[in-house]
């Protein structure tokens, strides 16, 4: 931070020599204003024209409440599953050598790169009742597609890279002497991992969890195919917004949208705080 501040001083002093400043600032602010702030402003402005009663009715209707429950619940499940398996994947990629490791490493990013509608129909094809895996699960009485479990599955998919990519670099940079110190002090392998490695990973794990949760909360494309979109049962919040829009109920859509936006901002604050803390911990 300090270093960056010091570095930028000489250039700033020569502001006249480097004509980029005015142009860069003007362009950045204009582009940001037109493309991001103006549309978001429209949402806020629209929301302010709603009557309080109408707003409350729109955001606390039974359908909305069911959608919040499903969206938050399934996002939480997805993020938890990722928080459980993500560190295992990160550990294996950071610590072991085995054939196909590079491929596995690349595949972790697939949910970032694969269009969500493709992910949606692919997961449905595999996990629906006559799909490759779905038919076996159905024998056990487990319905995945067109059930809340399917929503959680799709949200696990989209959140997968976040935990792995948060934890992996920390694991790679972890001073190997830490684990050796624990061993010399008498700690067995399991205890070393539990008492030394996991606490060091925890901030990154928490950040990855929050990122995964935030991404899942807003996800739309991969869910709408596998969920079956049954109101009160498998309807997520983003879908409810789309439905309201299709019914030309812009006020209803806006009201629920504001709630979603508020949740996203709250999460963004939490994530920023977590990242700042994790960074401080690692810089030391």
């Amino acid at each position: 931070m300090m270093e960056a501040a010091l570095r930028s001083v000489p250039l700033r002093r020569r502001g006249g020599v480097l004509p980029g400043y005015g142009l860069a600032l003007g362009f950045t602010v204009l582009y940001l204003g037109l493309l991001v702030l103006l549309p978001l402003g429209a949402l806020v402005l629209k929301a302010s024209t709603l009557s309080w009663e109408g707003f409350v009715a729109a955001v606390t209707g039974p359908r909305a409440l069911a959608a919040y429950r499903l969206s938050f619940g399934a996002s939480l499940v997805g993020a938890l599953v990722n928080a459980l398996f993500g560190p295992v994947v990160a550990w294996v990629l950071a610590r072991y050598d085995f054939p196909g490791k590079a491929l596995l490493d690349a595949l972790v990013d697939l949910p970032f790169a694969l269009p969500t509608s493709v992910a949606g129909i692919a997961l449905t094809a595999v996990y629906s009742q006559n799909g490759w895996l779905g038919q076996h699960l159905a024998k056990w009485g487990l319905q995945v597609a067109f059930a809340p479990a399917g929503v959680a599955l799709a949200l696990t998919f989209v959140g997968l890279p976040f935990v792995v990519r948060s934890v992996q670099p920390v694991l790679q940079d972890l001073d190997p002497h830490l684990e050796e110190a624990a061993a010399v002090l008498g700690a067995g392998r399991l205890r070393t991992v539990a008492w030394v490695v996991l606490p060091a990973l925890f901030p990154a794990l928490l950040t990855g969890f929050a990122l995964s949760f935030a991404r899942a909360l807003g996800e739309y494309g991969s869910v709408v195919f596998i969920s079956g979109n049954m109101p009160l049962r498998t309807e997520i919040v983003p879908l409810l917004i789309v439905t309201r829009l299709e019914q030309y109920d812009e006020a209803g859509a806006t009201a629920i949208g504001v709630v979603m936006l508020g949740a996203s901002f709250l999460l963004l604050l939490v994530i920023n705080a977590l990242q700042a803390r994790a960074l401080r911990g690692r810089k030391r």
């Binding site: 549309p39 949402l43 917004i241």
Partner: peptide, 11 residues
């Protein structure tokens, strides 16, 4: 951090 659906809605 904005849901894709909201990104459409604002426009």
């Amino acid at each position: 951090s904005v849901s894709p659906v909201l990104s459409g809605l604002i426009f």
